[in-house]
Design a protein around this nucleic acid. Structure first.
Lengths: 349, 349
DNA sequence: CGCATGGGCGCAAACGTTTGCGCAAGGGTG
DNA sequence: CACCCTTGCGCAAACGTTTGCGCCCATGCG
């Protein structure tokens, strides 16, 4: 803020000392190098008085450490990722690190570019929400000289620590909830096939089905991306099936939004004509025309835990890479209709 | 990505040249310093083959330019700011700059700290969404050696370029809309008093009132922050007034959310028992139990224009600081009830 | 043949730190 | 008095660039 912090040299000159001595006095190396207490105190006092703080660029050059972490995110404007970014930014400050933010715009090519740039900029650590379709470009990362943590989407083949929601468990709970309410024809609005999140959620859905002995019908799965418009199109398609599904399960928040549009357009009503469950909770969810039942992810925890792992590793601990699953929570509202016709609902377990 | 880019020195050594020559060949200074075309081409070929790219830290140290811009935001997890951050991040990439992100957590103290840190890190420009309560700590910025742009909240006294929504016009349009529908007792849920956004929105509201000759009643204004809970409490208070306001005007998206909660709790229904207009549009707005009429800000434009101004100035143009107002748009939905009792509605102009 | 001219490139300093090593002075010991 | 140890600190190199200045060699001209 004030007129440019003075340099180490300037401080040294004013005290008739060498930059060496000043540096050591300020870095707690005084004892190690036998700087007298008197000198150290004098240095520290002047430094404080002049609001000195070492030039991070010069320091970075010398130390090959920049007190900076890189954050690569597919889309910062998506509230989900925005909250992750928020938590990480806050955690970074706690660890006196800055955050270099990149937005890969859901494109692998930009992701590659961003990672390269961040590595060249000598970040001390990297948190990555991969676009998620492929991982070949990530394969050098486990051998990078800095720790890397994956968030949200993971690649089992990759030796990198990852933090993800318990997508499988969350989806299983949602589908189980629908089954309990007597639904048997459940349409699924999926996201980007090939991503771990999508795969796990589908797997959870299928697990719940087969646990109840309900056959899985691929014709009831539609969609090809996590974006709203894909949700709209997929929902419209599913709603035209005959017999119509009695419930839709949207595997993402934007997909749910698209579904709502398609349902309104049909026009149908939730939950009378069709039930709806969505992955991702949302502040507005309770106030929708039909407050929608959701699988809430603990987004804050995702960001927090990722940052924790990263800074642990930056701090030196070099544990084996492990993926951490953050639990989800089913938030029941009023978008699921109980089908009275079905005798076996609420069967024990 | 690959094993650390080689250094200039390494390239020079491999070609039997000096780092000087290599540097000039790569920076387009070849002609200026009479490097032969043959040499230049050889350098460029090898550089490309080895995927060389100059160490940004070293470069930053020497040049006192880092190809980095700082971004200070009160709360990245707020979708409004997240979108601004998104646009700026994208714009920065277009200009080959990186973004250092700070989250001030709506605290002036943290904002001060963040600005200081970014300046020390030698960012080439700074985009700031000020917390907005005070501006003394910003007063050195107009004299900083780098350009600074304010977004969302501005300080008239400060000689800094600023980009804000047309808050006054937007609020005026909203209130006018309510007046047209016959409402006279309009409760206002305000945000943080003292911020320019809040002040301008209130001013717009009052302008619309007085244009219609409706007196302004301070008792109908409640609230003390832009957060949801403040909206909830303020709405609850206003809803208990007798006679009850016939409409609420929430001056922010989270305030609207709080209002919805308070209305549901009352319990009242929108728009039958109470009308609602909110500042800030939202993807879920159309799907609420009463699709809510909103004043939509062009958030993308806010971010884009801010980035434009910043990079123009980084590029050298040192125009006088000017504040740019981005137009808002009234999105009419179904949360406003037309009060039939009132004869003078839809009066011309 | 002497000199100016121009082409092609390198020297060395600088940016602001950190750090291995070593130097000088003073005090104690034999 | 010679030696060693301790205390207190500085030298200089290094990190990887960029840049003002100047060097050297050919060539052309008179």
């Amino acid at each position: 803020m004030r007129n440019a912090s003075p340099t180490l040299k300037a401080i040294a000159a004013r005290l008739g000392l060498s930059p060496t001595t000043v540096s050591r006095s300020l870095n707690g190396q005084g004892a190690r190098y036998r700087i007298s207490d008197r000198t150290q105190r004098a240095v520290q006092r002047l430094a404080r008085r002049l609001d000195f703080s070492p030039n991070p660029i010069a320091r970075g050059l010398r130390l090959k450490k920049t007190a900076t972490v890189g954050l690569v995110i597919p889309d910062v404007s998506n509230p989900f990722f925005a909250r992750i970014a928020h938590r990480i930014t806050v955690a970074a400050r706690d660890h006196r690190h800055s955050v270099l933010l990149s937005d890969s715009q859901e494109q692998t090519a930009l992701e590659v570019e961003a990672i390269g740039l961040l590595l060249r900029r000598q970040v001390d650590g990297l948190i990555l929400c991969p676009v998620g379709l492929s991982d070949e470009h990530l394969s050098p990362l486990p051998h990078a000289r800095i720790p890397v943590v994956l968030v949200d989407r993971c690649f089992p083949g990759l030796a990198l620590p990852a933090v993800t929601s318990d997508n499988l468990g969350g989806a299983r709970a949602a589908t189980r909830h629908l089954l309990d309410a007597g639904h048997r024809r459940i349409g699924v609005l999926q996201g980007l096939p090939g991503t771990s999140t999508n795969r796990d959620r589908i797997a959870g859905h299928r697990a719940a089905l087969s646990a109840r002995g309900v056959p899985f019908d691929p014709a009831l799965v539609a969609g090809d991306s996590f974006l709203e418009d894909a949700g709209f199109r997929a929902a419209r398609r599913l709603l035209r099936l005959r017999p119509r599904p009695t419930a839709l399960f949207a595997l993402g928040n934007l997909l749910a939004l698209g579904a709502l549009r398609a349902i309104a357009e049909a026009p149908l009503r939730v939950p009378d004509d069709i039930s709806l469950v969505a992955f991702d909770d949302h502040p507005y969810a309770p106030h929708l025309s039909a407050p929608v039942t959701t699988v809430a992810q603990d987004v804050d925890a995702l960001g927090r835990v990722a940052a924790e792992i990263l800074f642990e590793r930056i701090g030196g601990r070099r544990a084996a890479p492990k993926t951490r699953a953050i639990p989800t929570r089913l938030v029941e509202r009023r978008s699921v209709k109980t089908l009275a016709t079905n005798p076996e609902r609420k069967q024990p377990t």
